[in-house]
Nucleic acid binder design. Structure first.
Lengths: 149, 149
DNA sequence: GGCAGGTAGTTCGTAATACCAACTACTTTG
DNA sequence: CAAAGTAGTTGGTATTACGAACTACCTGCC
Protein backbone atom coordinates (compact mmCIF):
# COMPACT_ATOMS: atom_id res chain seq x y z
CA UNK A 1 0.00 0.00 0.00
CA UNK A 2 1.63 3.18 -1.14
CA UNK A 3 1.18 6.08 1.24
CA UNK A 4 1.33 9.80 0.78
CA UNK A 5 3.79 10.37 -2.04
CA UNK A 6 5.53 13.74 -1.56
CA UNK A 7 2.44 15.68 -0.64
CA UNK A 8 1.85 18.97 1.03
CA UNK A 9 1.23 18.42 4.71
CA UNK A 10 -1.59 20.28 6.40
CA UNK A 11 -1.06 20.53 10.11
CA UNK A 12 -4.61 20.84 11.37
CA UNK A 13 -7.75 21.75 9.42
CA UNK A 14 -11.32 20.62 8.80
CA UNK A 15 -10.25 18.25 6.11
CA UNK A 16 -7.80 16.35 8.27
CA UNK A 17 -8.61 12.75 9.07
CA UNK A 18 -11.48 12.70 11.55
CA UNK A 19 -11.94 9.32 13.24
CA UNK A 20 -15.35 10.25 14.62
CA UNK A 21 -16.72 11.13 11.19
CA UNK A 22 -15.19 7.94 9.82
CA UNK A 23 -16.77 5.83 12.56
CA UNK A 24 -20.13 7.50 12.02
CA UNK A 25 -19.99 6.86 8.28
CA UNK A 26 -18.90 3.27 8.79
CA UNK A 27 -21.72 2.68 11.25
CA UNK A 28 -24.17 4.29 8.83
CA UNK A 29 -23.17 1.93 6.04
CA UNK A 30 -23.36 -1.01 8.42
CA UNK A 31 -26.90 -0.17 9.49
CA UNK A 32 -27.91 0.68 5.93
CA UNK A 33 -26.64 -2.71 4.83
CA UNK A 34 -28.76 -4.45 7.45
CA UNK A 35 -31.82 -2.41 6.50
CA UNK A 36 -31.29 -3.10 2.81
CA UNK A 37 -31.02 -6.82 3.50
CA UNK A 38 -34.16 -6.92 5.63
CA UNK A 39 -35.94 -4.88 3.01
CA UNK A 40 -34.84 -7.22 0.23
CA UNK A 41 -36.14 -10.20 2.22
CA UNK A 42 -39.51 -8.50 2.16
CA UNK A 43 -39.31 -7.21 -1.40
CA UNK A 44 -38.79 -3.66 -0.25
CA UNK A 45 -36.15 -1.20 -1.33
CA UNK A 46 -34.54 0.96 1.32
CA UNK A 47 -36.69 3.83 0.14
CA UNK A 48 -39.90 1.84 0.41
CA UNK A 49 -38.83 0.79 3.89
CA UNK A 50 -38.49 4.45 4.80
CA UNK A 51 -41.88 5.26 3.32
CA UNK A 52 -43.49 2.62 5.51
CA UNK A 53 -41.55 3.86 8.52
CA UNK A 54 -42.67 7.42 7.99
CA UNK A 55 -46.30 6.60 7.33
CA UNK A 56 -46.58 4.29 10.33
CA UNK A 57 -48.01 7.04 12.47
CA UNK A 58 -48.83 9.72 9.94
CA UNK A 59 -50.96 10.58 6.96
CA UNK A 60 -49.12 12.87 4.61
CA UNK A 61 -49.69 14.53 1.28
CA UNK A 62 -47.38 13.53 -1.55
CA UNK A 63 -45.22 16.65 -1.35
CA UNK A 64 -44.72 16.29 2.40
CA UNK A 65 -43.68 12.69 1.97
CA UNK A 66 -41.24 13.71 -0.76
CA UNK A 67 -39.80 16.36 1.57
CA UNK A 68 -39.31 13.82 4.38
CA UNK A 69 -37.40 11.58 2.01
CA UNK A 70 -35.57 14.32 0.15
CA UNK A 71 -37.02 13.17 -3.18
CA UNK A 72 -38.85 14.77 -6.09
CA UNK A 73 -42.61 14.57 -6.31
CA UNK A 74 -42.29 12.67 -9.56
CA UNK A 75 -40.23 10.01 -7.79
CA UNK A 76 -42.89 9.77 -5.08
CA UNK A 77 -45.60 9.09 -7.65
CA UNK A 78 -43.87 5.92 -8.78
CA UNK A 79 -43.06 4.77 -5.26
CA UNK A 80 -46.65 5.27 -4.16
CA UNK A 81 -47.96 3.60 -7.32
CA UNK A 82 -46.03 0.42 -6.64
CA UNK A 83 -46.86 0.32 -2.94
CA UNK A 84 -50.50 0.98 -3.75
CA UNK A 85 -50.54 -1.86 -6.29
CA UNK A 86 -49.25 -4.12 -3.52
CA UNK A 87 -52.07 -2.99 -1.27
CA UNK A 88 -49.76 -1.41 1.30
CA UNK A 89 -50.70 2.23 0.78
CA UNK A 90 -53.76 4.11 -0.36
CA UNK A 91 -54.33 7.55 -1.85
CA UNK A 92 -57.19 9.86 -1.05
CA UNK A 93 -57.97 13.20 -2.62
CA UNK A 94 -58.26 15.91 0.02
CA UNK A 95 -61.82 17.26 0.37
CA UNK A 96 -60.56 20.73 1.35
CA UNK A 97 -58.13 21.12 -1.52
CA UNK A 98 -58.78 19.19 -4.70
CA UNK A 99 -55.14 19.32 -5.76
CA UNK A 100 -53.86 17.53 -2.69
CA UNK A 101 -53.51 13.76 -2.44
CA UNK A 102 -53.14 12.23 1.01
CA UNK A 103 -51.18 9.03 1.35
CA UNK A 104 -51.66 6.60 4.23
CA UNK A 105 -51.26 2.95 5.07
CA UNK A 106 -53.88 0.34 4.55
CA UNK A 107 -54.51 -2.08 7.42
CA UNK A 108 -52.56 -4.69 5.46
CA UNK A 109 -49.72 -2.22 5.00
CA UNK A 110 -49.73 -1.39 8.69
CA UNK A 111 -49.52 -5.04 9.61
CA UNK A 112 -46.77 -5.64 7.07
CA UNK A 113 -44.78 -2.64 8.26
CA UNK A 114 -45.14 -3.82 11.83
CA UNK A 115 -43.70 -7.19 10.88
CA UNK A 116 -40.83 -5.70 8.92
CA UNK A 117 -39.92 -3.27 11.68
CA UNK A 118 -40.03 -6.07 14.24
CA UNK A 119 -37.51 -7.70 11.99
CA UNK A 120 -35.37 -4.57 12.00
CA UNK A 121 -35.37 -4.52 15.80
CA UNK A 122 -34.56 -8.21 16.01
CA UNK A 123 -31.68 -7.70 13.60
CA UNK A 124 -30.15 -4.61 15.16
CA UNK A 125 -30.77 -5.42 18.81
CA UNK A 126 -28.06 -8.12 19.06
CA UNK A 127 -25.34 -5.69 17.99
CA UNK A 128 -26.60 -3.24 20.59
CA UNK A 129 -26.62 -5.96 23.25
CA UNK A 130 -22.86 -6.01 22.98
CA UNK A 131 -22.93 -2.72 24.84
CA UNK A 132 -23.42 -2.60 28.59
CA UNK A 133 -26.77 -1.14 29.71
CA UNK A 134 -25.26 2.18 30.75
CA UNK A 135 -23.46 2.39 27.43
CA UNK A 136 -26.77 1.92 25.65
CA UNK A 137 -28.25 4.76 27.64
CA UNK A 138 -25.27 6.91 26.74
CA UNK A 139 -25.53 6.03 23.07
CA UNK A 140 -29.23 6.83 22.99
CA UNK A 141 -28.55 10.23 24.52
CA UNK A 142 -25.74 10.97 22.12
CA UNK A 143 -27.74 9.93 19.06
CA UNK A 144 -30.65 12.05 20.18
CA UNK A 145 -28.37 15.00 20.77
CA UNK A 146 -26.96 14.51 17.29
CA UNK A 147 -30.26 14.33 15.43
CA UNK A 148 -31.93 17.04 17.49
CA UNK A 149 -33.25 19.88 15.36
CA UNK B 1 -32.95 -19.64 17.02
CA UNK B 2 -34.64 -21.88 19.56
CA UNK B 3 -37.57 -20.58 21.52
CA UNK B 4 -38.46 -21.96 24.87
CA UNK B 5 -42.23 -21.66 25.14
CA UNK B 6 -42.14 -22.03 28.91
CA UNK B 7 -40.05 -18.93 29.27
CA UNK B 8 -41.52 -16.72 26.61
CA UNK B 9 -42.51 -14.16 29.20
CA UNK B 10 -38.97 -13.79 30.38
CA UNK B 11 -37.34 -13.56 26.96
CA UNK B 12 -36.36 -10.09 25.98
CA UNK B 13 -39.07 -8.98 23.60
CA UNK B 14 -37.16 -7.93 20.51
CA UNK B 15 -40.32 -6.67 18.86
CA UNK B 16 -41.25 -4.15 21.53
CA UNK B 17 -40.63 -0.51 20.79
CA UNK B 18 -36.91 0.05 21.12
CA UNK B 19 -35.93 3.71 21.30
CA UNK B 20 -32.26 2.93 20.82
CA UNK B 21 -32.89 1.07 17.56
CA UNK B 22 -35.17 3.87 16.45
CA UNK B 23 -32.56 6.50 17.22
CA UNK B 24 -29.91 4.50 15.42
CA UNK B 25 -32.10 4.13 12.35
CA UNK B 26 -33.02 7.80 12.38
CA UNK B 27 -29.39 8.80 12.66
CA UNK B 28 -28.52 6.43 9.84
CA UNK B 29 -31.06 8.03 7.52
CA UNK B 30 -29.83 11.46 8.53
CA UNK B 31 -26.23 10.67 7.68
CA UNK B 32 -27.26 8.82 4.53
CA UNK B 33 -29.17 11.89 3.44
CA UNK B 34 -26.11 14.07 3.92
CA UNK B 35 -23.91 11.60 2.05
CA UNK B 36 -26.41 11.35 -0.79
CA UNK B 37 -26.54 15.12 -1.09
CA UNK B 38 -22.76 15.50 -1.11
CA UNK B 39 -22.56 12.68 -3.62
CA UNK B 40 -25.15 14.30 -5.86
CA UNK B 41 -23.20 17.58 -5.80
CA UNK B 42 -20.28 15.64 -7.22
CA UNK B 43 -22.30 13.48 -9.59
CA UNK B 44 -21.86 10.42 -7.45
CA UNK B 45 -24.46 7.99 -6.21
CA UNK B 46 -24.21 6.77 -2.65
CA UNK B 47 -22.84 3.51 -3.98
CA UNK B 48 -20.15 5.21 -6.04
CA UNK B 49 -19.24 7.25 -2.98
CA UNK B 50 -18.76 4.00 -1.10
CA UNK B 51 -16.67 2.53 -3.89
CA UNK B 52 -14.33 5.49 -3.75
CA UNK B 53 -14.21 5.27 0.04
CA UNK B 54 -13.31 1.61 -0.04
CA UNK B 55 -10.70 1.91 -2.76
CA UNK B 56 -9.00 4.90 -1.17
CA UNK B 57 -6.45 2.70 0.52
CA UNK B 58 -6.95 -0.64 -1.22
CA UNK B 59 -6.74 -2.43 -4.51
CA UNK B 60 -9.42 -5.08 -4.77
CA UNK B 61 -10.63 -7.61 -7.27
CA UNK B 62 -14.17 -7.19 -8.55
CA UNK B 63 -15.63 -9.93 -6.38
CA UNK B 64 -14.04 -8.56 -3.21
CA UNK B 65 -15.39 -5.12 -3.97
CA UNK B 66 -18.84 -6.61 -4.53
CA UNK B 67 -18.59 -8.40 -1.19
CA UNK B 68 -17.65 -5.18 0.63
CA UNK B 69 -20.69 -3.49 -0.83
CA UNK B 70 -23.05 -6.45 -0.57
CA UNK B 71 -23.73 -6.34 -4.32
CA UNK B 72 -23.66 -8.80 -7.19
CA UNK B 73 -20.64 -9.02 -9.45
CA UNK B 74 -22.79 -7.99 -12.38
CA UNK B 75 -23.77 -4.80 -10.57
CA UNK B 76 -20.10 -4.11 -9.92
CA UNK B 77 -19.28 -4.38 -13.61
CA UNK B 78 -21.58 -1.48 -14.41
CA UNK B 79 -20.40 0.63 -11.48
CA UNK B 80 -16.78 0.11 -12.43
CA UNK B 81 -17.52 0.79 -16.11
CA UNK B 82 -19.00 4.18 -15.37
CA UNK B 83 -16.28 5.17 -12.89
CA UNK B 84 -13.64 4.00 -15.35
CA UNK B 85 -15.21 6.05 -18.14
CA UNK B 86 -14.93 9.06 -15.85
CA UNK B 87 -11.28 8.33 -15.30
CA UNK B 88 -11.68 7.69 -11.57
CA UNK B 89 -10.92 3.98 -11.52
CA UNK B 90 -8.86 1.58 -13.59
CA UNK B 91 -8.94 -2.16 -14.15
CA UNK B 92 -5.96 -4.45 -14.43
CA UNK B 93 -5.94 -8.13 -15.21
CA UNK B 94 -4.09 -10.08 -12.52
CA UNK B 95 -0.83 -11.63 -13.76
CA UNK B 96 -1.13 -14.57 -11.33
CA UNK B 97 -4.70 -15.49 -12.23
CA UNK B 98 -5.98 -14.55 -15.65
CA UNK B 99 -9.60 -14.57 -14.52
CA UNK B 100 -9.12 -11.92 -11.89
CA UNK B 101 -9.52 -8.21 -12.52
CA UNK B 102 -8.07 -5.80 -9.98
CA UNK B 103 -9.72 -2.44 -9.51
CA UNK B 104 -7.93 0.59 -8.15
CA UNK B 105 -8.04 4.35 -8.23
CA UNK B 106 -6.32 6.49 -10.77
CA UNK B 107 -4.40 9.52 -9.48
CA UNK B 108 -7.30 11.68 -10.67
CA UNK B 109 -9.74 9.43 -8.82
CA UNK B 110 -7.67 9.61 -5.66
CA UNK B 111 -7.60 13.38 -5.82
CA UNK B 112 -11.32 13.54 -6.50
CA UNK B 113 -12.13 11.14 -3.66
CA UNK B 114 -9.96 13.18 -1.34
CA UNK B 115 -11.92 16.30 -2.24
CA UNK B 116 -15.29 14.60 -1.82
CA UNK B 117 -14.37 13.09 1.54
CA UNK B 118 -13.08 16.43 2.75
CA UNK B 119 -16.53 17.65 1.89
CA UNK B 120 -18.09 14.83 3.91
CA UNK B 121 -16.00 15.78 6.94
CA UNK B 122 -16.81 19.46 6.55
CA UNK B 123 -20.50 18.61 6.34
CA UNK B 124 -20.72 16.18 9.23
CA UNK B 125 -18.28 17.85 11.58
CA UNK B 126 -20.60 20.76 12.53
CA UNK B 127 -23.29 18.37 13.79
CA UNK B 128 -20.65 16.59 15.85
CA UNK B 129 -19.40 19.90 17.23
CA UNK B 130 -22.70 20.20 19.04
CA UNK B 131 -21.38 17.53 21.36
CA UNK B 132 -18.94 18.34 24.12
CA UNK B 133 -15.42 16.99 23.60
CA UNK B 134 -15.85 14.19 26.13
CA UNK B 135 -19.15 13.24 24.51
CA UNK B 136 -17.39 12.97 21.18
CA UNK B 137 -14.84 10.65 22.74
CA UNK B 138 -17.66 8.57 24.19
CA UNK B 139 -19.50 8.43 20.89
CA UNK B 140 -16.38 7.35 19.04
CA UNK B 141 -15.85 4.54 21.54
CA UNK B 142 -19.44 3.41 21.34
CA UNK B 143 -19.53 3.42 17.54
CA UNK B 144 -16.30 1.47 17.43
CA UNK B 145 -17.65 -1.04 19.92
CA UNK B 146 -20.77 -1.39 17.77
CA UNK B 147 -19.04 -1.96 14.47
CA UNK B 148 -16.31 -4.16 15.91
CA UNK B 149 -16.20 -7.60 14.35
C1' DG C 1 -67.44 36.58 -12.63
C1' DG C 2 -63.46 35.46 -15.01
C1' DC C 3 -58.90 34.82 -15.99
C1' DA C 4 -53.74 35.02 -14.74
C1' DG C 5 -50.64 32.95 -12.00
C1' DG C 6 -49.40 29.73 -8.56
C1' DT C 7 -49.55 24.97 -6.41
C1' DA C 8 -50.16 19.67 -6.26
C1' DG C 9 -49.61 15.58 -8.63
C1' DT C 10 -48.93 12.84 -12.66
C1' DT C 11 -46.77 11.45 -16.93
C1' DC C 12 -42.91 10.91 -19.95
C1' DG C 13 -38.21 10.30 -21.29
C1' DT C 14 -33.72 9.15 -19.64
C1' DA C 15 -29.91 7.40 -16.78
C1' DA C 16 -28.23 4.78 -12.98
C1' DT C 17 -28.68 0.92 -9.85
C1' DA C 18 -29.50 -3.77 -9.00
C1' DC C 19 -30.85 -8.49 -9.84
C1' DC C 20 -30.67 -13.01 -12.32
C1' DA C 21 -29.41 -16.04 -15.99
C1' DA C 22 -26.44 -17.06 -19.54
C1' DC C 23 -22.10 -16.58 -21.38
C1' DT C 24 -16.67 -16.39 -22.01
C1' DA C 25 -12.31 -17.18 -20.40
C1' DC C 26 -9.39 -18.85 -17.37
C1' DT C 27 -7.83 -22.34 -13.43
C1' DT C 28 -7.98 -26.39 -10.75
C1' DT C 29 -8.93 -31.26 -10.10
C1' DG C 30 -9.45 -35.92 -11.06
C1' DC D 1 -6.40 -33.57 -20.79
C1' DA D 2 -11.31 -33.39 -19.93
C1' DA D 3 -14.63 -31.93 -16.31
C1' DA D 4 -15.77 -28.99 -12.93
C1' DG D 5 -15.26 -24.76 -10.78
C1' DT D 6 -14.25 -19.63 -10.46
C1' DA D 7 -14.01 -14.61 -12.14
C1' DG D 8 -15.96 -11.33 -14.68
C1' DT D 9 -18.99 -9.60 -18.44
C1' DT D 10 -23.21 -9.22 -21.08
C1' DG D 11 -28.12 -8.87 -21.75
C1' DG D 12 -32.79 -8.53 -20.06
C1' DT D 13 -35.83 -6.59 -16.61
C1' DA D 14 -37.60 -3.82 -12.64
C1' DT D 15 -36.89 -0.06 -9.60
C1' DT D 16 -35.24 4.37 -8.31
C1' DA D 17 -34.47 9.03 -9.37
C1' DC D 18 -34.35 13.27 -12.00
C1' DG D 19 -36.15 17.15 -14.85
C1' DA D 20 -39.52 18.94 -18.08
C1' DA D 21 -43.99 19.15 -19.62
C1' DC D 22 -48.60 18.47 -18.55
C1' DT D 23 -53.43 18.50 -16.02
C1' DA D 24 -56.30 19.97 -12.50
C1' DC D 25 -57.29 22.87 -9.05
C1' DC D 26 -57.02 27.03 -6.08
C1' DT D 27 -56.29 32.15 -5.20
C1' DG D 28 -55.91 36.95 -6.29
C1' DC D 29 -57.04 40.60 -8.73
C1' DC D 30 -59.48 43.61 -11.91
Amino acid sequence: MVRNPNHVKYDRDMTAANPLVDALVRCTFEVTGALTRIGAENDLSLTQLRVLGILRDRRLRVTELAAYLGLEKSTMSGLIDRAERRGLLARERSPEDGRVVDVFMTPAGREFAQRVYDDVRRTLAPALEKLRPEQRTQLLELLEALTAR
